[in-house]
Amino acid sequence: MARSILNYLFMRLLQVIPTVLGVLFIVFFLSRILPGNPVIAILGPKATPENIEKVVKELGLDKDYFTQFIEYLGDVIRLDFGRSYIMNVEVRDLLFDRLPASFELVIVAYILSIIIGLPLGIIAALKRGTWVDDLVRILGVIGISMPTIWLGMVLQIVFGIYLGFPVGERIDPLLAPKKVTGFMLIDTLLEGNIYGFLDALKRIALPALTLALPLSGLLMRLVRTSMVEVLLSDYIRTAKMKRVPRDVLLYRHALKNALIPVVTVMGLYFAVVVTGDIIVETIFSWPGIGRLIYEAVLLRDYMVIQGAVIFISLIYVLVNLVVDVLYFYIDPRIKA
């Protein structure tokens, strides 16, 4: 078993390499055909031609694209994403600075969507064909049809304005904890800063809910479908015939098997969440990677666009790797 997992892991890792190279190429290509001169964006409208030329040289923009790409590749291997021309900071620092904010948001959104979606999906599967089932299905389809741009706006108004929730940024600056993990919710608790924790929780609630509601709609439907399928399968029927108690049957077998597709799709959905939050992070002034990418595209900050897209794609590839391994682990029937 251990050996086969290692083999499997190795093969999957090998597959990752051409994918990552391809990503690098596409991203580089796209960022170079972007219109607009980054040098003018840096120097401002009143720059002199000598000045422009100097900066072009400094940035290596005068070399041909192939040389630029090869140089860039070498840097990326050394985990050096270059310097942001416009924000005047190392892209790597910028990414690591913004990463915890996005991760915290995504994790809280995941947890929220599981809290909402999983029980509803199970209930619907168990009460298949009743009004409960219908209700959950309706909620599910409403959830996945909800446009983030609209949902975020409505939540911001209802909670931010009428209920007085703090909006924007991750925490009140006066309550900000020292940076340990970069996750506000954890850092405040480590300090025993209960007010900070509550403030951070209030601030993360709205953007997380905006991300979580569509996700929980999807989850609801998936859990329901896969539960039903498993409940109807020979596997469970056999187990029932063997007189396995109902609880064990439902939770150990049915639920565990139903979770397999759920885990996969949650992995795939990671991309949707990370990018869906470009919108959410913009609406809620959340200082994460999504907003960084949006700002970078607006400012034509090549280095940041490249760095962020590659970074996210790497994480995405990694997440799918983990999902595949989990898959392998959860379901003993699969021997890839």
Binding site: Q156, G160, I161, G164, P166, V167, G168, E169, D172, P173, L174, T282, I283, F284, S285, R291, E295
Partner: peptide, 20 residues
Amino acid sequence: VIIRIFKDPSSLRIALENGE
């Protein structure tokens, strides 16, 4: 002086109204 940067002007308005 703590200068907080709001990328979204509507969030700034809410923060002002909430006394943040």
